[in-house]
Design a protein around this nucleic acid. Structure first.
Lengths: 337, 337
DNA sequence: TTGTACGCGTTATCAT
DNA sequence: ATGATAACGCGTACAA
């Protein structure tokens, strides 16, 4: 690979001049400019971004940390799509780093991006605690935004959904339709999101003076297979219920499959808390309803805040951005219409 | 950020010694080692990877180029998951770069990764021609692998599926089951994959002396919505058929939705060429069958070859890796059982 | 076992 | 308008 120096020699100028031509900063005569461009052409010169970034102390790159256990599924791809598109508008590059499967590895992924001198970082955490992320934000000068967790100290550095409220609303909706025995399939309980959704369900029952039945709450792991098993477990228990609330679309799909196989009527039997962003969801079945997760809106806000900080702005401490999950009108005309 | 020099000063040694401690190369007394580590601790020193990579001329990073139009969907996330996991085993980092929506932007993404001094590159192309990729491989010393395209010159630098053969088999299967009027929903026709699948379908009909009916071939765009529209178009044409072959799962799901709404019996009416990797697919409906796309197998081979080259190996020119798409036994007991 | 000095390919600050 | 030259932070022969 030819370097700037070779270009300079061939053009009969100094490195500095070549640099000026490339950056567009400073004065260069049209004539030398031409010669430099020609030399670049002839040598097939390409700037070494490592050297450039090292010298300029900026990389135009923004890092995103996500566990690879979340790589599967439409929700993840939606996050990525949105992040990429918004950043594209801002002329910056996105670097995805694998958070793997532990807090330690999530830490390392963040460190790696920082060591790479990324200008800013987006964390979609799976294992890190909010306190630790507060610390991380404090310890680094680079702008950092956290998605889907509510931080205590740096509230303006995170973006979240009101999972609890959404779950509450969904459950209340079913209650209003006359259901009293509502089964609930949880997500992986090591995930704050799963906890919030369960808690919203419980609150809704309490608010309507309906007694909680432990037997109606069955564990899931976000996957269709676990939704399938959850219903199986319910059937084995021989507990009766007139509706099911699943903590995401995938589990709801698995649940419906099992109900189908068991010959149970589905309409009004099952409802879903999930993501509007699964493009296939509206096509799956008339009885599948979802709660809209505004990923696009959220990622847009994340990027905006990062860019704002990169431009030298400071976020106020208490400007938290919470986005409501809303019941959507499913194409399938589900119970949530 | 503190630098290596500050650590050296604090430890009362030279930069070189600190470097030796960190790299583990060369002799350092236990005593100085201790002091260096302590100094690192006290200063909170972190190595600057830009500087390190610049000096050592290697980054331990492998770049992956994918258009963001493919970011949605399970197929993409599966590719990413597999790539990340295999690389994790090899102790290397994956950098994802957006190929955006044109050949030019795909070129730029590749260049960016090369300029970043990535050790190797994986291209999952959408717009680039095979000839151009052959050129790119030739022009760069970095190992480059292409997924899902058959290259002419560097056959061992690409990995592909036999889409045509798979489509042929699926159509033949339906024919063997007695179907003669088989509708076909294409993918986006600017995609080689879509063309191959269509061509496999046509060949199968020809092989059984069944006349091609243009009216039975309807255009799709890979999305559920386009599958839905495709069936709508078929209905409007009032053409009769006893089976549908869709070029992927998503479109098949959309197609089934439309058939459902139209009150048409589904069993044996619809079949799918799609991806085993959609985790929800087996849960969707009993009549949905798929062709297995061995993403895992393919990405494993890609990474293996890259690592082989990085270790100084040379790939023979004609060692092409083609992986069969296989009909799978759907959980749903579809026609492909 | 440790230190010196140079190179990596840029950018940036001065003079000129 | 252009050219030296010093950073940038680290790796690495080579010398000590």
């Amino acid at each position: 690979m030819s370097t700037m120096l070779e270009v300079a020699k061939k053009a009969g100028v100094s490195k500095a001049t070549v640099s000026r031509v490339l950056s567009g900063k400073g004065y260069v005569s049209e004539e030398t400019k031409r010669q430099v461009y020609q030399a670049i052409e002839e040598t097939g010169y390409r700037p070494n971004l490592l050297a450039r970034n090292l010298a300029s102390n900026t990389s135009q790159c923004i890092g995103l940390v996500v566990t690879n256990t979340l790589y599967n599924g439409n929700y993840f791809s939606e996050i990525l799509t949105q992040a990429a598109k918004k950043l594209e508008d801002k002329g910056r590059q996105l670097i995805l780093m694998d958070g793997k499967h532990s807090a330690q590895e999530e830490r390392e992924a963040i460190q790696f991006l920082l060591d790479l001198q990324c200008d800013a970082i987006i964390i979609y955490p799976r294992f890190l605690t909010t306190d630790e992320m507060d610390d991380i934000i404090e310890q680094h000068k680079q702008p950092i935004m956290v998605v889907n967790r509510k931080l205590r100290k740096h509230q303006s550095h995170c973006i979240c959904c009101d999972h609890k409220g959404a779950s509450f609303n969904a459950a209340r909706y079913l209650i209003q339709r006359g259901h009293r025995d509502i089964a609930f399939i949880t997500g992986s309980m090591d995930s704050p999101t799963a906890i919030e959704r369960l808690s919203g369900y419980k609150d809704a029952l309490r608010a309507s003076d309906i007694a909680l039945q432990d037997g109606l709450i069955v564990p899931g792991k976000w996957t269709p297979a676990s939704g399938f098993s959850a219903v199986e477990a319910l059937l084995n228990k021989k507990i009766s219920y007139s509706a099911i609330l699943a903590s995401n679309d995938d589990m709801a799909i698995g649940a419906m499959k099992k109900l189908n196989e068991a010959g149970i009527q589905i309409p009004e039997k099952i409802s879903v808390i999930g993501f509007d962003d699964i493009p296939t969801a509206p096509y799956l079945t008339p009885s599948l309803s979802s709660v809209k997760d505004p990923v696009s809106e959220m990622m847009g806000e994340v990027i905006n805040r990062l860019i704002f900080m990169l431009d030298g702005g400071y976020l106020s401490r208490d400007n938290i951005f919470t986005s409501d999950l809303r019941l959507r009108n499913s194409v399938g005309d589900g119970p949530f219409k």
